[in-house]
């Protein structure tokens, strides 16, 4: 269901168990005691099992939130932290969404062994502090294992822009959303008494393009929730091919994505 800012919500289905709290996700504002208003245009998602609500939008401006993985650019270094900028997928972003990456926020870093980053470096990091009124803070290690787990400086390669929705799908949110959609369709079809032709790939989970590319080409990829995708490979030709395929696959179904990749590989 498509909603716009200020729209009232439809009746929320009752919780599956008693005493489950309703989870209100991005795009919705809760004013106590029980008023929920939409503040972002997008598609309303209702997960009945987990009793959660959220809006799936496709904006271009990224708003930092806790535990998001992002691709940032180092602007400068101060005495105890790197000042970074979190670019959104609109390319000429102003440097106002600045974030702090403390020198010691790397796995096993001490004052002497910390990695040296220079202005213009690309870094893959996790947001460790996100607050409405403060600059966010970043960390380059996994919260649980305290290890690098792929975070840190991204050397070489190229950064491509995608929309925020596409970035979320590439990070695996697509599977969840697809299951929800399939379920919804089933319910609707049952209501209308029709048979549902289940085509698994009709709704893309956003990852078919990477799966298909990864089968043939050797490349590295890192996806940031701020709508940036970093790709690296041996040859610029391959990097460009991967980046372009990802950018073009945004509105395609799973089948079309596979066809797109095959077409691109032929040209390579």
């Amino acid at each position: 269901m498509l909603v716009f800012p200020g729209d009232p919500l439809p009746s929320i289905p009752p919780p599956p168990k008693a005493n489950t709290t309703l989870k209100v996700g991005p795009g919705l504002t809760h004013t106590p005691p029980d008023n929920i208003v939409v503040h972002k245009a997008g598609e309303l998602n209702i997960d009945e099992r987990r009793h959660a609500l959220w809006i799936e939008g496709n904006g271009k401006r990224y708003i930092p939130s806790l535990n998001d993985v992002v691709i940032v650019t180092v602007l400068r270094s101060t005495s105890d932290a790197y000042i970074c900028t979190i670019p959104s997928s609109i390319s000429p972003a102003p440097s106002s969404t600045q974030a702090m990456l403390p020198h010691l926020a790397f796995p096993g870093a001490t004052k002497k062994t910390r990695p040296q980053l220079y202005p213009g470096c690309t870094v893959y990091a996790r947001i460790s502090l996100a607050n409405k009124h403060m600059d966010p803070e970043l960390e380059c290690y996994d919260a649980e294992s305290q290890k690098a787990e792929g975070f840190g400086e991204l050397k070489g390669g190229m950064v491509f822009n995608v929309s925020l929705g596409m970035a979320r799908r590439l990070l695996g949110d697509g599977k969840k959303i697809r299951q929800l959609r399939l379920k919804q369709r089933k319910v609707e079809a049952e209501k209308g008494g029709e048979d549902l032709a289940t085509d698994d790939e009709e709704i893309s989970n956003g990852m078919e393009v990477l799966e298909e590319l990864g089968r043939v080409l050797p490349f590295e990829v890192a996806v940031g929730r701020n709508g940036r995708v970093w790709v690296d490979s041996e040859e610029p030709k391959v990097t460009l091919c991967v980046g372009r395929c990802i950018q073009q696959s945004e509105f395609l179904t799973g089948k079309e994505q596979r066809a797109l990749v095959r077409e691109a590989l032929k040209k390579l």
Partner: peptide, 24 residues
């Protein structure tokens, strides 16, 4: 607000790709 400069990796990649007659 200032336009954000492309990062080092973007810069080197774009210029390197141009040398090989490729545009982004």
């Amino acid at each position: 607000p200032r336009e954000l400069e492309p990062s080092t990796s973007e810069k080197t990649f774009v210029l390197e790709a141009l040398k090989q007659k490729l545009r982004i």
